[in-house]
Write a protein that binds this DNA or RNA. Structure first.
Length: 203
DNA sequence: AGCACGATTGCCT
DNA sequence: GGCAATCGTGCTT
């Protein structure tokens, strides 16, 4: 069951919290790769010094944030990694939720091939490193800037309820990662994690 | 046209 | 723990 448009039509903090435990799917060329979201960050838009859209900054890169909710925002960081966000809130309020880590569930062999060049016989360490970071999960799912602006209610990249009920979990909130430039916003508790999940990007 | 920097990762000590 | 890699992007000139 895909999350509907209204799910995304709320503020980023609310959506970031509620995306925990949901299932991200990338389906391309008949190949399905998916995982459960275990870590997110909220970027609250024009008033959030951590956000790409802070102060109403609008560029070709973040243009999709200014469109309707429920679309992908994929951007390149450090010249080599991609980060996946869901655009949230009504059109014109440029907020987003960064997907920071997944627990892999489907297409693990394909993800392993994409990350490590082998489809099986992963060490426990490799298994954990498959999707425990925003750049890593994009690598595993095969997501690039070419997947920017996709409708998350479409058939290529979408988010659903989990196929089988995910074990009950506690949600933790803490400061976001690597936004040292964000002044007072540095300490806002807008990073959400499933407590003790083995696929978190850090403790 | 040039330049400083980043919502990261992986390798090294 | 530290730090280099690597280049698209945005902003200045």
């Amino acid at each position: 069951m895909k999350l509907d448009r209204d799910f995304y039509n709320r503020d980023a903090v609310t959506v970031a919290r509620e995306l925990l435990g949901k299932r991200v799917v990338h389906q391309e060329d008949g190949i399905c790769r998916a995982g459960i979201i275990v870590e997110t960050e909220a970027y609250m838009g024009v008033e959030d010094k951590g956000a790409h859209s802070y102060g109403g900054r609008r560029t070709p890169r973040n243009e999709v944030m200014y469109g309707p909710p429920g679309y992908s925002y994929v951007y390149i960081i450090y010249g080599m990694y991609n980060c996946l966000n869901a655009v949230v809130n009504e059109a014109g309020t440029p907020q987003g939720v960064l997907i920071r880590a997944l627990e892999p569930t489907e297409g693990i062999d394909v993800m392993a091939e994409a990350r490590f060049g082998k489809a099986s016989l992963l060490t426990p360490r490799e298994m954990r490193n498959l999707t425990n970071g925003p750049g890593k999960l994009c690598g595993a799912l095969g997501l690039t800037r070419a997947h920017n602006g996709l409708d998350l209610l479409g058939d290529e990249l979408f988010i659903t309820d989990p196929l089988v009920p995910f074990a009950s979990f506690e949600v933790n909130a803490g400061p976001r990662i690597n936004i040292d430039y964000a002044e007072e916003a540095v300490h806002y508790p807008w990073r959400f994690t499933i407590q003790d999940n083995p696929y978190l990007s850090r403790k």
